[in-house]
C-alpha cells in the first residue's frame, strides 16, 4: 500500500463540544494524517475522550451534547455520512476491554452479522482474518466457542480490536486502550498498533508519555483553560514535540511537572 505522506484522513475544523452549557472543547483545529498514529495527550478532564468520541459521533448518544465546527473525513463532513457507515469505518477501542458475554467467535462475528453477513463460511473467514490481524489467532484458535470473558485482560482488549477490525474500518480510535493492562500486555497492544498502521489510521488517547513517545508518529497536546474548557496547545511530529516542544506548557507536561 502506498502511503501518501500528506494525505489527511481527518480535518478537524474549529470543533467545540458542549455538555449543556459547559464547554468541554474549545475551537480545536487539527489535521489527522492517513495511516499514521496520532496520540492525544493532556491532563485529566481536558476533553481527550470527548474529542475522540467526536470522530465516530458517539457523543450524539449522550443527551444534551451539542457541538460547533466540523470534522471532515477524507472529503466528507462526518455529519453528512450515514451514522452506520461512519461507525463501520471508524472503529473504537475503549479504556476497559468490553467484549460481549458471548463466545470469542460471536464477538468477532458480531459486527459483520449486524451488517448482514449471514454465510457461515464468510463469517469464519472474517473471524480468522481479524483475529490474525490482532495477533490473537494462535492463542484462541482452539477455543473460539469459549466465552470471551474467560480471556485475560490483554487478550480481551485484542479481541475488541479484532471485533472492530472485522467490519473493515479505515480508522481506529483508542481511548487509553492499555491503561487497564499490565506492561507486557500493553506493549503487545503497541506492537499491534504498528502492525495495523498500513491498514488503518489510529488516534490514541494516552496518559502514558513513554507510550506516546514510543508508539505514535504525531502528538497533539491538549490543556484546559480557566473555565475547564479543553484547547489544543500544540501538535506535530512526536519526535519534535518530545524533543523540542514549542510551548513551555508542553515541556512541563511531558516532563511530568503537571497534569
Amino acid at each position: 500500500m502506498d502511503i501518501d505522506a500528506n494525505c489527511e484522513k481527518f480535518q478537524v475544523e474549529n470543533l467545540s463540544v458542549y455538555y449543556d452549557d459547559f464547554r468541554a472543547l474549545n475551537n480545536i483545529t487539527l489535521p489527522i494524517k492517513c495511516n499514521q498514529i496520532t496520540s492525544i495527550i493532556g491532563p485529566s478532564g481536558c476533553g481527550k475522550s470527548t474529542f475522540l468520541r467526536a470522530f465516530n459521533r458517539m457523543n450524539d448518544l449522550i443527551p444534551h451534547v451539542s457541538s460547533e465546527g466540523r470534522i471532515i473525513k477524507d472529503t466528507q463532513d462526518i455529519c453528512d455520512i450515514d451514522i452506520v457507515a461512519l461507525r463501520k469505518s471508524v472503529g473504537m477501542i475503549f479504556q476497559r476491554p468490553n467484549p460481549f458475554p458471548k463466545s470469542i467467535f460471536e464477538n468477532v462475528a458480531f459486527g459483520p452479522k449486524a451488517h448482514g453477513v449471514k454465510a457461515m463460511v464468510e463469517l469464519e473467514d472474517i473471524v480468522e482474518k481479524s483475529l490474525r490481524l490482532s495477533a490473537l489467532w494462535d492463542e484462541v484458535k482452539d477455543r473460539l466457542d469459549k466465552s470471551a470473558l474467560s480471556l485475560s485482560g490483554g487478550q480481551q482488549q485484542r479481541l475488541c480490536i479484532a471485533r472492530a477490525l472485522a467490519v473493515n474500518p479505515d480508522v481506529l480510535l483508542m481511548d487509553e486502550p492499555a491503561s487497564a493492562l499490565d506492561p507486557i500486555a500493553s506493549l503487545k497492544i503497541e506492537d499491534l498498533m504498528q502492525d495495523l498502521k498500513s491498514q488503518v489510521t489510529i488516534i490514541i488517547v494516552t496518559h502514558n508519555m513513554q507510550q506516546a513517545a514510543r508508539a505514535s508518529d504525531f502528538t497533539a497536546f491538549f490543556n484546559m483553560d480557566e473555565d475547564r474548557a479543553g484547547y489544543l496547545v500544540e501538535h506535530g511530529e512526536t519526535a519534535r514535540i518530545f524533543t523540542f516542544p514549542g510551548e513551555k506548557l508542553t515541556e512541563n507536561y511531558i516532563s511530568g511537572r503537571f497534569g
Binding site: 465516530n56 452506520v84 461512519l86 461507525r87 472503529g91 473504537m92 475503549f94 468490553n98 467484549p99 471485533r163
Partner: peptide, 21 residues
C-alpha cells in the same frame, strides 16, 4: 453501558444492540 457502546460503535443499530446484546 460498555456493552451498548461496544455494539453501537460497530455501527449496529439501537434495535440490533438491544436484541442481540
Amino acid at each position: 453501558r460498555s456493552y451498548r457502546e461496544g455494539s453501537l460503535s460497530l455501527g449496529a443499530t439501537k434495535w440490533h444492540t438491544v436484541f442481540n446484546v
